[in-house]
Design a protein around this nucleic acid. Structure first.
Lengths: 243, 243
DNA sequence: GCAAATTTAATGTCAGACATTTACAATTTT
DNA sequence: AAAATTGTAAATGTCTGACATTAAATTTGC
């Protein structure tokens, strides 16, 4: 665990990287306590604020947590699925919004990934997952729902679908794909007719999941992708014509 | 952009969250310069080191970059696919290693996700992607290859397969699923016979991609999943028996 | 008018101090 | 003797002030 003192700028980044590598390599295990800030500043031969900046970098990635008081300190953190999930969503959302990713590309990726759940969800979905999907369908049918609320419910529907596969790793990996689409979807205004078509497809998918029919789930998602793409294409074409 | 001064602990975390929200909401746009550290410490009514800790947190997530010198400062960073990719891999790897995720669960998720590329890759794979896959297959056939090198080549093969879908969002989302499996795969020792079977399946998949046969790519991946799962089950059963 | 030197504004780092939190031990009280 | 209280020490959280370093902008010299 060493740093390069010749490069006097970036010290805190170097220290953070050094500690991060120790954690990734498994030499620092979960719940193990790091040396105190004073000890670390001795070890690395830097001041305490520099060590602290390094620790904050690690805390930002949920790699460590800190605790005040006697027998406090910095501890290697067990990354929970929840934390990783939130990070995934943040990173994916920013990636899409900052890099001029076309709606088409993002949508293609999202449905391609989501279809990968079709088989598992059709096989394993619990009554709870089905109920969650039905509840969102019901919400989507409410009149007077804003576009934003409709999109949020759409995301919730798909999350229930993904969670139905009963594989936490799959749920985590898909979090970014599904949730990061929301800002892009929010750019679309849905007519009552559009909503009807989407809700009908959601019902088709929920029915298929209930019947354990994986092919029908797969096909329902594909139909939903086609619907979404053509809807978006229409909105963007109209918007382009106006300007 | 405000913080709660009543809660005098966590100030740097609060400031980081406040700025992060500004970026996510789009009120701070890419390449925009944040106020200087001195100005921020005035605005939030905290000291400069506290502001700095907050900025380091954001830098750790690649949300900002800093530049020294006159007209330097902290700038909102455009997250590149490369950076997001690296973060995804780190988070996914740690998540798997720290949460007692079974090989079976991780493997299931990985292949489910990878199959989602089958259609697109079969349609769009370039000659370069095919060449990359063939090159890795060739490397895997070399005698005297360590298990670790074999696994690394395996990951490279699958990355080429995923990139063949020609969808950067898909490549990014799958990075975690494919690369984070490597440490788990490294726990397995491959006999010459095991390698032969895996290489044969790789060839089958590459052939299918070359022939634009998406069903064959899909089936090849499924066969590879079955092979990997049974191989792992064998290794773990044997290891359990010894202890 | 152009190149070199200077200024300046910003981050990077350091040192020392105080505030706050928390666990643990010692003390007092019941 | 047991329980509640108090004291103490160790750790992080924050502040102040200073100096170092970098790089752009400005001035100066020719």
């Amino acid at each position: 665990m060493k740093i390069d003192p010749k490069n006097p700028a970036n010290l805190s980044a170097q220290i953070a990287t050094a500690i991060r590598n120790e954690i990734i390599a498994g030499r620092l295990i979960v719940d193990e306590r790091l040396p105190s800030e004073a000890e670390l500043s001795d070890q690395f031969d830097v001041s305490r604020p520099t060590v602290r900046e390094a620790l904050k970098r690690l805390a930002a990635q949920s790699l460590i947590r800190t605790q005040r008081g006697a027998s406090g300190g910095a501890f290697v953190n067990r990354i929970s699925f929840q934390e990783a999930y939130a990070q995934q969503v943040t990173t994916s959302t920013l990636l899409l919004s900052m890099n001029d990713v076309s709606f088409e590309t993002a949508c293609e990726a999202r449905f391609a990934l989501e279809r990968s759940c079709a088989t598992l969800t059709a096989k394993r979905r619990s009554a709870d997952h089905l109920a969650a999907m039905r509840a969102e369908i019901h919400r989507q049918s409410q009149p007077g729902l804003t576009d934003e609320a409709f999109c949020a419910s759409d995301v919730a529907f798909h999350r229930a679908l993904v969670d139905g596969a009963d594989n936490p790793v799959l749920s985590y990996q898909l979090a970014g794909a599904v949730e990061a689409m929301q800002p892009l979807m929010n750019m679309i205004t849905f007519s009552a007719r559009d909503r009807e078509r989407i809700i009908a497809l959601h019902e088709q998918i929920a029915d298929a999941a209930e019947a354990h029919d994986s092919n029908a789930v797969f096909d329902g998602l594909t139909a939903l992708e086609v619907e979404t793409q053509s809807l978006a294409a229409g909105v963007f074409a109209q918007r382009a014509a106006q300007h």
